[in-house]
Design a protein around this nucleic acid. Structure first.
Lengths: 248, 248
DNA sequence: CGCAGTGTTGACACCGTTCAACCCTAGTGG
DNA sequence: CCACTAGGGTTGAACGGTGTCAACACTGCG
């Protein structure tokens, strides 16, 4: 099993001392397993806790009339959701687990304690928040201005980097246990066109996606097709070529 | 002249006492006038201050190859930019004034002071941040899943509500001193198609846009065309029908 | 007056959608 | 062990919304 992905992420956003590392570990004690389809935070609800993804995959999505929906973010292990909403708002979208996932819950009180007494950790949380914001902005650009091929490539490359950043890439492969329809809902394409687009990427030997696992075969080419500029990840994707980050 | 729009906005996000009101006013003392086209924060820069828009209009945008660009947010009076970036990051996009604008600058030190000593104001800032985030997400939905007519309608209605929330709507009119190309860059459409779409809205008598001023003639119809759900503004757009909010 | 930027309109092309048929696989139950 | 089913993926054909290109109109300004 890899190390706690949330801890890994917090460490990349700032140097935590031993005490703070212990504190982060203790935060992730209260765990819960949710199965695929569970709505952690339905639209309209008032969450009283903040979730930390420890394993699995979740997404934020908004649905419009007629069953159409748009996914506006993926939550991978290490991500945490809705610091602000838990403190002062109502969900304007839904957070849903896409596969069986393990999450830790921390209370608003614990969050306040962090903000008051843990400057290094606070800084790391702010950084994570900044990256989340930048990522949504990049999605506007991606879904708005790039053609289907680049768009799908961009998303799969982003997810590759984000998984790599928390040690979840092995031999250029990461798990992506979602359907093409989910990918379509994230890229604002139709499921049919996502299928065609993936076929093209596969035929060009850029990547494989089977058994719920994405394998990047030509990283450089994929990045090029995607027109990817990693700035928006603010360093979280710097280990673009993870070397032997195996489970251990 | 209307009241300080930043103060108006902070007050809608929490009850500030007299002392805090004074403090907010004092924050907006150090003003600066920037002309159209000024890049307040170019991509790649490390801002050391936080801006507050007092008048005018600005946008965040990212450009791709070949001069294409995507606007990812508009900044109207009362908005403030980049709390987090000023504290810990580099700009991954550009903030640019679209017309001559008046901005106040506050230093990172002052921000820290607020976070440490002004709980009500801190709360209001967090709320503003939450709404900014929710707004970008809504843009993903808007640009990704709605047809051109609804998309343009949605954006113009959003801007209507946001101007109303800071007292900048009079007789269902607000100033929007931008070009159709700007609108196209925000909605991920071409300028030509924006032109056609606006013509349709005009022909249906829903709105007018001339002399850099948008006049909403059939609010209910516009909302309907847009498929607008105001949830994401978290109450900031509740005064949907401002009654005689005249300059005074 | 001339110019440049902006907006409008028409013709046409194209990317992506929709609809439909079909395949493949995993899971279920007999 | 096989038959059946359901969901997901693939492929083809036709349609349509939006982009592109181009010409022209309008406006404000030097």
């Amino acid at each position: 099993m890899v190390d706690n992905p949330f801890l890994v992420k917090m460490r990349t956003h700032g140097d935590l001392d031993g005490q703070e590392v212990d504190f982060v570990r203790s935060l992730c004690q209260r765990r819960e397993t949710v199965h695929a389809g569970t709505e952690l935070a339905p639209q309209g609800s008032n969450p009283e806790v903040v979730w930390i993804m420890l394993s699995g995959l979740a997404c934020r999505h908004k649905s419009l009339e007629e069953g159409e929906r748009q996914i506006v973010a993926f939550l991978v292990p290490g991500d945490l959701c809705d610091l602000q909403v838990a403190m002062l708002g109502r969900m304007d979208h839904t957070i849903e687990a896409m596969v069986e996932s393990s999450v830790a819950t921390i209370t608003v009180l614990e969050v306040r304690e962090i903000l008051n007494c843990r400057p290094a950790l606070t800084r790391a949380l702010l950084m994570a928040n900044l990256i989340d914001l930048a990522t949504v902005r990049e999605w506007v650009v991606n879904n708005g201005r790039r053609a289907a091929l680049a768009r799908v490539a961009h998303l799969l490359w982003e997810l590759y980097l984000r998984h790599a950043a928390v040690g979840l890439v092995t031999d250029h492969m990461y798990r992506l246990p979602i359907t093409q329809r989910d990918l379509a809902d994230a890229t604002s394409l139709s499921n049919v066109h996502v299928s065609r687009t993936l076929t093209r990427l596969r035929e060009e030997g850029v990547l494989q996606w089977s058994a719920r696992t994405v394998e990047i075969k030509k990283p450089e080419r994929l990045r090029e097709i995607a027109g990817f500029d990693p700035d928006y990840l603010h360093g979280a994707g710097q280990r673009t070529e993870p070397h032997g980050l195996r489970d251990a």
